[in-house]
């Protein structure tokens, strides 16, 4: 029951942030300074979400050249810097992750 309630509440949160400035009843406008600040939201939050997965794979810090998550992330970052389409970046880095896991 709590899970369903959480899902509904999360749905309300994700809908609200999308709809808030599309609602007529909301007279506020967001100024350019605020827009400049929010521009940094996506890179900051996506980075913060990635760090624990890579450096704390099973809850404990794992800083080592044999950590397949770190090696796979290096592959993903390098490929993302090329013009390779995103789907290939993902497929190749996942394949290398599996390979690192198997080899190390």
């Amino acid at each position: 029951m709590t899970i369903w309630l959480t899902i509904i509440a999360m749905a309300l949160v994700t809908f609200s942030v999308r709809y808030v400035f599309l609602a007529r009843s909301i007279p506020i406008r967001i100024n350019d300074t605020m827009k400049r600040f929010l521009k940094f939201s996506a890179p900051a939050v996506l980075t913060a979400l990635t760090v624990p997965i890579i450096f704390f794979p099973e809850g404990e810090v794992y800083l080592s050249t044999t950590n397949p998550f770190i090696l796979g992330a290096i592959v993903a970052i390098s490929l993302s810097l090329t013009r390779l389409p995103t789907i290939w970046v993902l497929l190749i880095s996942m394949a290398s992750f599996v390979a690192f896991q198997w080899l190390l």
Partner: peptide, 26 residues
């Protein structure tokens, strides 16, 4: 419950920017 909602809000906050930007058209 509150931790789940806070993290949902932090993660999806970037949509505020999209919403504000689309406002002029929508």
């Amino acid at each position: 419950f509150s931790a789940m909602l806070t993290s949902s809000l932090v993660i999806s906050a970037r949509h505020l920017l999209y919403s504000a930007d689309m406002r002029q058209h929508i």
